[in-house]
Nucleic acid binder design. Structure first.
Lengths: 225, 225
DNA sequence: CTAGAGTTTTATCAAACAGTCAAGATTTCG
DNA sequence: CGAAATCTTGACTGTTTGATAAAACTCTAG
């Protein structure tokens, strides 16, 4: 009997190995070219096997993509899940930012795959976003709001705060080509990571207004009499 | 004689109209599916003309893409160019952030096209980034450094500061699908824009540390002796 | 060792794709 | 108007792409 990946049956050694090779090759392709731009031929070539052989493990292109996205989402939401309501607010946020930044450094392909899917309007994962991501964000937004009410952090829109953490950290994976052009070859990847971490810490903790400056010195608004 | 788009010749009314229709349709397709994922057929259909007719104006798929990217870059760099060294630092930065946010709101397709190109490793615009974007960023980083030395803004890495403004603002265009899922349908596009603007103003000016908090209350680091 | 499950390849297909060509339709302008 | 320039189309080409069928091969449990 055929032992396809989708069936609930114990997988053979070869099956496990090849599915792994395929998913890795597919990540490489999908993360750069998106669903339509990637081709089975290139994925197969990258995985070192023939196209029909690849299709023996995943019958359709879409099956590979979905397996990839599903697996990605698990690891992707983990840092936010780890945001702890009982910890000290500012260190807790700092460590969340640092985790996200580490993920951008260690899993750039996953970050790009996710970005690509959202760019396309999230046609294949909207459902999962609604059923998993939204409730999670709602919950953590509640945690943040609690911290704000307790005066532990500044009062801001908690969802936009989360957006800003996502965007600033993922930027280093998704826009890496641009980052490299602008920062030049001087500083290696490790140095860039530390610079980014240091900058984001300052930004999220203290912003840009210098310590001694008057509260409304920044705005074009007129000072109250 | 043939009057192709690439030749230096006065363009006819029909030429101008059709090139405009094509570029608009192409923006729609390329911004979602990337270069490989987009097809001439779909662009032609979206532009309301036959494929051979479209290819009369742009001989190759790549020509459309390049015309699009070239035109995009002009408007894309404009806000950063407008960052004025002689203005008041904080208001100047605030207005730059607001401009970028307005662009994410008003030109989301352009933002996604750019994101798509960078995601792919910027194969078609790396040269332009090196020759145009990098010098511009270098110049503006100098301006920012000047402001820091004058004590007008906090001392941070100016390039990473620019990255964070790009990422937080463009996020609302590029990740719109995700933003909509998380914010829900309660608040319309206009409301979301104002919320984002207000949040980013707080973040970039003051960060998250509440006013009265001790300087190092946030960090897990040991205080220097 | 061998039978059957599991894996790989060769050959193939129809649809989609980028791009061409020449003939026909339309616009422009003297 | 009428001829030249410009524009549009249908028919076509060669290639790539996603997917299938069946034969050939390999592994492994009994």
């Amino acid at each position: 009997m055929k032992a396809r990946a989708t069936e609930t049956q114990r997988k053979t050694r070869i099956q496990l190995e090849n599915e792994e090779k395929i998913l890795d090759a597919a990540l490489e392709e999908f993360s750069v070219h998106g669903f339509r731009g990637a081709t089975i031929d290139r994925i197969a070539a990258h995985a070192g096997m023939s196209k029909p052989n690849l299709l023996y493990y995943f019958r359709r292109k879409q099956d590979i993509y979905e397996a990839l996205i599903l697996r990605l989402l698990e690891t992707w939401l983990e840092p936010l899940r780890a945001l702890d309501a009982v910890g000290e607010p500012l260190p807790e946020l700092q460590s969340y930012i640092r985790r996200k930044l580490e993920m951008a450094r260690d899993f750039p392909r996953e970050s790009r795959l996710f970005a690509n899917e959202i760019l396309q309007g999230a046609p294949r994962i909207r459902r999962v976003l609604e059923s998993e991501l939204k409730p999670l964000v709602d919950e953590k937004a509640g945690v943040l709001t609690g911290w704000m009410k307790a005066g532990k952090i500044n009062t801001v829109d908690p969802r936009h705060l989360i957006f800003s953490i996502w965007s600033t950290t993922q930027h280093y994976a998704d826009f890496d080509a641009q980052v490299q052009v602008i920062l030049g070859p001087d500083r290696g990847a490790a140095g860039r990571f530390e610079d980014a971490a240091r900058y984001l810490e300052t930004l999220f903790l203290d912003g840009l207004r210098p310590k001694g400056a008057a509260q409304d010195a920044a705005g074009p608004r007129v000072r109250a009499p």
